[in-house]
Design a protein around this nucleic acid. Structure first.
Lengths: 260, 260
DNA sequence: CTCATCGGTTCATTATTAACACCGATGGTG
DNA sequence: CACCATCGGTGTTAATAATGAACCGATGAG
């Protein structure tokens, strides 16, 4: 079913950063022949998974995706479960809380709740978060089967002076994260931002996404960190359960250690 | 690209009514061989467009759809545009307002706003609306290219004593709807419910979905109907414009006729 | 105990997709 | 203005991928 893989590859080339792309560019990025790319686009367009901007002739994701996502969300409300967890997290910590979803080695921001204060961390819905440079990404990698590390690009992008770009160092860091059950990074993706994240799990005890709290680094203290970690752990358990997921043993142990 | 068509066909077998389906059942409904169906499911599962309930071994739509839909919605906010239009519609009329999306000859409820009163029309998000038996469906058919009528099932389902089940009669009705620019039906899908609907259009001036107001039939009056129609026309224009769509000439004429 | 149906797998047969070369149109550049 | 590159899009044969009947073990109803 490599045909399905290729169709999906085309769909996954669209992002919040590049929502509309032309034919040649798509073929280039996907590594397909232009004629083949066109045939795929026409097929996808037929089902409204893709649509074409008639002015620019560029392609973009289509409304058929909304239709399918609405069915899924109505019968299996992942997004709304995350949203309510984030409201509690943001309310309890007074900081920005966000949830990410891991799809095919890409971590995307699915939901965000901002606290009602002026100085807060900002990020965008749909934003793609680098796996090696954010707390959310690292905690996902840490709880994923080791072979998932192969999906990482050879070159780890640098975002700030603190970004981990050495593979060895990253792997070492992941081991520690797995042991402690959460990830905490400071200024590795955006300067002056500290993030703490935990994963939530699917029915196979594999990480499906993350819950995270992000604070201005200046505001982070040992006390605030502890509070955030405890809340994240509780919400992770709650979300995982609501989804019909299962916590892996080496994660659920933290639930008892952390509670005072 | 028949492979893409088949993959989509499998995805489209899931609905709010039947969100989880087993392998044999899927093969039967799609008309595919069981082995082929399995190969498709495995391929779709790899990209999280489908996921499997490990207990029942049944399949359901996957979280990858949320990911893609979020990207589309962030960069091209159809759903949120509809939502704000519905808030105005429901607020202005005091009745239930809903929006439907047409994907591959299937009309699905994408957004709903209920008025704050006890006696109101109820429907569900993600609900599939029959094209021949609802105001929304009829207005879509009326403004679609005639060949779209071929997608209709041979047998038009009966929902109430008022449901149109005769093809001739339906076609006649559609002509009138196209001329007047809106559809109005009473008790054809649910007893005691009257619906009024207008389409909104894409960049090719093709109907992409509908805006509708539904009232308990007992409450409908000539005055209320006129008010609803005027508001629907205005919101249709506004939504179409916000989407980068184009009104067909025989629709936009009503904008001037209706305004008093 | 039997039979039907479930999810899932195997492998020779067959229909599909790939990609080169080419089209006219568009737009930036010397 | 003429040039060249690139755009979106399109045919046609060679190479590749999907198909489906038969078969598994497991499960559950009569």
């Amino acid at each position: 079913m490599q045909t399905v893989d290729k169709a999906f590859k085309l769909l996954s080339l669209f992002s919040v950063e590049t929502p509309e792309v032309g034919l040649s560019e798509l073929a280039r990025r996907a590594g397909f022949d232009k004629a083949a790319t066109r045939r795929f686009l026409v097929a996808l367009q037929k089902h409204q998974l893709i649509e074409q901007n008639p002015e620019t002739r560029h392609y973009r994701l289509g409304p058929g995706l909304l239709h399918l996502a609405k069915i899924r969300e109505t019968t299996f409300p992942l997004e709304s479960i995350l949203q309510t967890a984030l409201v509690r997290l943001s309310g309890g910590t007074g900081e920005t809380a966000h949830a990410g979803l891991l799809v095919h080695a890409v971590l995307t921001t699915l939901a965000i709740v901002f606290p009602p204060r002026a100085n807060r961390v900002h990020l965008n819905l749909g934003e793609k978060l680098p796996l090696h440079a954010t707390a959310s990404g690292q905690v996902l990698l840490a709880f994923s089967p080791p072979e998932k590390l192969d999906d990482l690009p050879i070159q780890l992008n640098t975002y700030t002076t603190q970004t981990i770009t050495d593979r060895q160092q990253l792997v070492h860091s992941l081991q520690q994260i797995r042991q402690q059950g959460f990830a905490r990074v400071s200024n590795t993706y955006e300067d002056e931002v500290t993030g703490i994240a935990v994963p939530f799990f699917d029915a196979h005890a594999l990480p499906q996404g993350t819950l995270a709290v992000a604070t201005p680094s200046a505001r982070m203290s040992a006390k605030l960190e502890l509070q955030i970690r405890q809340q994240l752990l509780l919400e992770s358990q709650s979300v995982t359960q609501a989804l019909g997921g299962v916590l892996p043993a080496d994660f659920s142990q933290h639930l008892y250690q952390e509670t005072p």
